[in-house]
């Protein structure tokens, strides 16, 4: 048996032996925590519209997002958000609060390397790819929109 075969056999053996994450309980936790974050968001939105009836829908959405981003960032600083994340997984990563957490956490972590080389450079280590893909896909969609609008 050569090394390649040995490694393949070993990797096969290891993957059979790995303890598996229980899918249903983690999906359930993701679902209700993620849903709760969305409900909170909707609640903030409704309250804003209730308090300031003259607010346009667009402005209310923006203010809601800013509030959620602030809350997540604040909870990250308090060391609470990573606990929520450990419990909820995707449920607290997918909403915008997860994005906020992924920018705040490296900023806190790399504060020790200074403002420029620490905070500013490392701030986007996790969220960077998300921003890149977001910008690139909006460019693609915009291009398609432009093509369609020609006809």
């Amino acid at each position: 048996m050569d090394d390649k075969q040995r490694n393949e056999a070993y990797n096969k053996y290891v993957s059979a032996k790995i303890p598996k994450t229980k899918a249903w309980p983690s999906l359930f936790n993701s679902f209700w925590v993620g849903g709760l974050i969305c409900v909170i968001g909707q609640g903030i939105n409704d309250l804003l519209l209730l308090a300031f009836p003259n607010l346009s829908m667009q402005t209310a959405w923006t203010l809601t997002l800013i509030t959620l981003i602030f809350l997540a960032s604040f909870l990250t600083g308090l060391g609470v958000y990573d606990q929520i994340g450990k419990f909820a997984g995707g449920g607290s990563i997918v909403p915008i609060t997860g994005f906020s957490n992924s920018i705040t956490s490296p900023s806190i972590e790399f504060k020790s390397e200074g403002i420029i080389y620490g905070i500013c450079v490392k701030m986007f280590t996790i969220a960077g790819p998300v921003i890149v893909f977001g910008v690139v896909s909006s460019m693609v969609v915009g291009f398609i929109y432009w093509i369609i609008s020609l006809f």
Binding site: I84, S105, I108, F110
Partner: peptide
């Protein structure tokens, strides 16, 4: 953690292994 993995306050889950 910061050298090999993620920031401490990032809300991710650790795999069972």
């Amino acid at each position: 953690e910061r050298q090999y993995r993620f920031p401490l306050e990032l809300g991710n889950q650790r795999p069972p292994t």
